[in-house]
């Protein structure tokens, strides 16, 4: 097995161990802890008052819009990383190319900004 595959196997092993760290305490405490459920205890927490209505409250659409804008610009970061890593070898042309790419995206940001997408109202 080459070093490339080996490192991913090791990461798999770490994932397994990490999952154990997450699950083992739950299992151990399941053996040890008392279990005395009561209807009052099992209520939704609402600062001691009786819970009212269900949890599917309306929430601001703004959270969702941030997520949409995020997707666009997160992709940009992914494109920038390989460019950054090979920046030394690429020379002036790649630099100008990337400037064009960035300017287009900055244009997108400016548009979103003026549209009020980034405004928390």
């Amino acid at each position: 097995m080459g070093p490339y595959a080996t490192s991913y196997v090791l990461i798999g092993a770490l994932m397994l161990f990490g999952a154990m760290v997450g699950v083992a305490p739950l299992v151990i405490s399941a053996w040890l802890r008392p279990r005395k459920p009561s209807p009052l205890k099992n209520q939704t927490f609402e600062c001691g008052l009786e819970s009212k209505g269900d949890s599917w409250v309306q929430f601001k659409v703004q959270y969702y819009i941030y997520a949409l804008v995020f997707v666009i610009f997160d992709l940009e970061t992914i494109f920038l990383l390989p460019w950054a890593a090979t920046f030394h070898q690429l020379g002036l042309f790649a630099f100008l190319e990337m400037i064009v790419f960035l300017v287009v995206l900055v244009g997108g940001l400016v548009w979103a900004w003026r549209k009020g997408v980034l405004e928390w109202k």
Binding site: S29, L32, R33, R35, K36, N42, F45
Partner: peptide
Amino acid sequence: KFLFKENVMPAH
């Protein structure tokens, strides 16, 4: 303490 605490699983 965390290990011995009762695990309240709310009904909902």
